[in-house]
Each structure stands twice: as C-alpha cells, then as structure tokens.
Amino acid sequence: MSENLSPTPATAAERTSREPKFPAGPAADPAGSHHERRIRSFQPRRSRVTTGQGESLRRLWPKWGLDIDGLSRLDLGELFGDPELPVVLEIGFGMGEATAQMAAADPGTGILACDVHTPGQGNLLGLAERNGLTNVRVANGDAIILLREMLAPDSLAGLRVYFPDPWPKKRHHKRRLIQPEFLALAATRLAPGAVLHCATDWEPYAEQMLEVLSAAPDFENTQPDGGYAPRPEFRPLTRFEGQGLDKGHVVHDLMFRRRAA
C-alpha cells in the first residue's frame, strides 16, 4: 500500500500566520453603527492583500490614512500639512495608479482619495511613498459620510468620480452614486467655481449623469453646447479604461462647475 503523499491542508492558524499584518491600518467598518443604514453605492471588498500592500498599510496608514467614522470634522489644512493647499476629493480610485499620476503632475493640489478596496489602499500608499508624493491622503469608508459629517462647507477645490460602478441592472439603478441627493450634498462642500468631474464607459450611466447634472440647480456645464467634455489631459488613461476602449466602449467625461451662491 503506497504512502499518501498529498499535502496536509493548512490549519486556520497557519493560514492566518501567513497573511500580511497591518494592525494600524484601515478599519473594516469605520462608521460602524454611528450612522443610519441605507442603500449604498459601493460594496466593501477586503480581498487578498499582498505582502507589499500590507506592509504599506501597516507603516503608512498612521501617517497618510484616515478612517471615515463620521465622528469629527476634518481640518484639511492640518491633514495635508498646508492650510493654503487646495484639496480635491476623489471617490473610488481602484488600485491608485491614476491618482498617483495626477498627484505627481500637480503637487500644488492635495488629493483626498476615498475607497473601500483594501489592496488598492495599500497600493496607493506604496506608490505615494516610492514617488515622494506628499499631497495624497487615503480615506477608508463611505464617501457620503465623509462629505456630510466630516468636511466643512465650501472646503473642496474639486470632486472626481471616475468610472463608478454603473449598477447596470435596472433594479440596482438606485445604487448609482450620481443622483440628485448626492449632487445637492456635494454642492455644499465644493467651493464656488469648483468642478465636479465624472467619467464613465457605461453609455446608459453617462446619459443619466448628463441628465441629472444638467438638472441640478447648483451646477452648470463647463461645455457651451451642454454636452460631454473632452477628456482633459490631467486625467490619465488608465489600464481599466484602455481595456474598455479595446472592447469598443465609449468613454464620456462630464465636467460641471458649482455655481456661485
């Protein structure tokens, strides 16, 4: 009878011991039960974190990261170490490559990058350190709570929402981020003249964005013809976007300015 040479399955403890540790990193649910439960436009994803990403989270989160707990008002000047630095909020940054490129190209602007994807948070922190980017901060949690509870009125120099989840099924359209309620909230946190810049490769969502933004009383289209904007040079062509273009997707940019009060 031959000996069974198949490997013994790893125990839970052994698997846990091999996983990267970042005890001072982002919390799983930073707002907890402090705020109301509601339909959200995102799905928290604590997927596989590489050793490098975990190390970046462990070392850099206390320095450049913040959990969106909704319990205190942020001082953006203190957060970025410069009270004169204009700050743009980016909601959803994926793995952070485009965010890092924009930060490097415009060191005079702070980027507060918000997402719930733990590997992307670690990756962006690592990119910021390797490239000497001191104008990036990473926020973990619900962007609605960040806007409503933690940012002061008129405190943002811009807002970027690139390739948000399109929630293509009709029954899920209510989960889409760009809705009248969101725009009304965003307008209170954007300084007069600040630009809300959206991009999507999902045609029906682009049409909805244009319709909703055009009807928002606090915003005006930067395009004289009232249509889509050409892709600005400062928005990098991401790998995700390139894959969509290869499939025949059409990418639409929308740039709307907050009206003066």
Rank of each mutant, 00 (worst) to 15 (best):
M1F: 07
S2L: 13
E3Y: 02
N4W: 04
L5N: 01
L5H: 02
S6N: 11
P7H: 01
T8M: 12
T11W: 07
A13S: 09
A13Y: 00
R15H: 08
T16L: 15
R18F: 07
P20V: 12
P20E: 04
F22Y: 15
P23C: 13
P23M: 12
G25P: 07
A28W: 06
P30R: 03
E36A: 15
R37C: 02
R40A: 12
Q43L: 13
Q43I: 11
P44S: 08
R45G: 01
V49N: 06
V49H: 02
G52F: 04
G52S: 03
Q53L: 15
S56R: 11
L57T: 14
W61D: 12
W61I: 14
P62L: 13
W64P: 01
G65D: 05
L66E: 05
I68F: 13
G70P: 03
S72W: 01
R73E: 10
L74C: 00
F80D: 01
G81I: 11
D82T: 05
P83W: 09
P86A: 02
P86Y: 01
G92L: 10
F93Y: 15
G94T: 11
G94V: 12
G96C: 12
A98T: 13
A98E: 12
A98Q: 05
A100N: 11
Q101R: 14
Q101H: 07
A103D: 05
D106C: 06
P107L: 06
P107I: 04
I111K: 07
L112K: 06
A113C: 05
C114F: 04
D115Y: 08
D115F: 11
D115M: 10
D115R: 08
V116Q: 09
H117L: 10
P119R: 12
Q121G: 03
Q121M: 14
G122S: 14
L124N: 02
R130G: 05
G132R: 11
V136W: 02
A139S: 10
A139H: 00
D142R: 09
A143M: 09
R148N: 01
P153K: 04
D154K: 00
D154Y: 00
S155H: 06
S155W: 09
F163E: 08
F163C: 11
P164Q: 14
D165G: 06
D165A: 08
K170V: 04
R171I: 04
H172L: 06
R175I: 12
I178V: 15
P180I: 05
E181V: 14
F182S: 04
L183V: 10
L183I: 09
A187E: 08
R189N: 04
R189L: 09
R189A: 08
A191D: 03
P192C: 13
P192F: 11
P192D: 09
H197W: 03
C198A: 14
T200A: 08
E203G: 02
P204W: 03
Y205H: 10
Y205C: 13
Y205W: 11
A206W: 00
A206V: 10
E207I: 07
A216Y: 00
P217R: 05
D218F: 09
F219K: 04
N221S: 15
N221Y: 05
T222C: 15
Q223T: 09
G227Y: 06
Y228N: 02
P230W: 00
R235I: 10
R239T: 14
R239C: 03
Q243G: 13
G244R: 06
L245Y: 00
K247I: 00
V251R: 06
L254G: 01
F256R: 02
F256N: 02
R257P: 02
R259D: 00
A261M: 13
